[in-house]
């Protein structure tokens, strides 16, 4: 009857990153100025999302190998939270873009790829809701999921690197590590990524357990 330790750890890490991200000294940067602090809030959404979606794919593979519906439920709920994180990433990115690039949306390969990637996963949710039969839904969505993840990774991490892009870390632009000469930013950034990922797993965990209880009730009826 105790809360799992990693949930508390996640909460503490995020709390640390929320607070320290605001007060830590930052390098002087043109245009970005204080908004470089978004690094501690906007970027962990994407990193967290990718890790959640990875977890989702792992559970999809597990389902196809063993056939337990439990793994399908896990996979689906992890995707839901991943998509939520992705939406947060897009909206926060748009605010940041407006204030550094001058527009909420630019036809940047990184942005468009991210949007396509989100649509792939929204389609996953629609696909799931369109199949009545549990077994069939689980199998079809697991296969879709396993195909989506590699495509998604290519879309958001590889393709934008091959062309011109405004986004840091793409199109020959340096990533944040070039600003972070004394690792002060890393000291907040990495805990933020780990913390938000754990919080994401926690939220997914709650949804998974709710679904499992629902499933059991249906079986008993």
């Amino acid at each position: 009857m105790v809360i799992k330790w990693w949930k508390i750890l996640g909460a503490l890490l995020v709390l640390y990153a929320l607070i320290w991200g605001l007060i830590t000294p930052i390098p002087k940067l043109a245009i970005l100025e204080e908004s470089i602090r978004n690094l501690f809030y906007h970027v962990p959404m994407w990193f967290g999302m990718v890790l959640l979606l990875l977890g989702s794919m792992v559970n999809a593979i597990k389902f196809l190998r063993k056939g337990y519906l439990k793994d399908d439920i896990k996979s689906a709920q992890l995707t839901h939270v991943g998509v939520l994180f992705g939406m947060m990433g897009i909206v926060t990115g748009m605010i940041w873009a407006k204030n550094t690039w001058g527009a909420y949306w630019t036809n940047d390969p990184k942005l468009n790829s991210a949007a396509i990637g989100m649509l792939i996963y929204l389609a996953y949710i629609v696909l799931r809701s369109s199949i009545e039969d549990e077994e069939k839904r689980a199998r079809v969505s697991a296969v879709y999921n396993i195909f989506s993840f590699p495509i998604f990774v290519v879309l958001i991490f590889i393709l934008p690197r091959l062309t011109a892009s405004l986004h840091p870390g793409n199109g020959g632009n340096p990533g944040f590590n070039s600003y972070d000469l004394d690792s002060k930013l890393r000291l907040v950034f990495y805990p933020a990524v780990i913390g938000w990922t754990l919080i994401g797993y926690w939220i997914a965990d709650l949804a998974i357990r709710k679904e499992l209880i629902k499933q059991k009730q249906l079986d008993n009826e």
Binding site: K7, A11, V14, L15, I19, L22, W202
Partner: peptide, 17 residues
């Protein structure tokens, strides 16, 4: 910000319980 986040975590804990 800290208070808001702690509040949300508190809510998560209560659902978990």
């Amino acid at each position: 910000i800290a208070v808001i986040f702690i509040g949300i975590v508190g809510y998560l804990i209560s659902i978990d319980r």
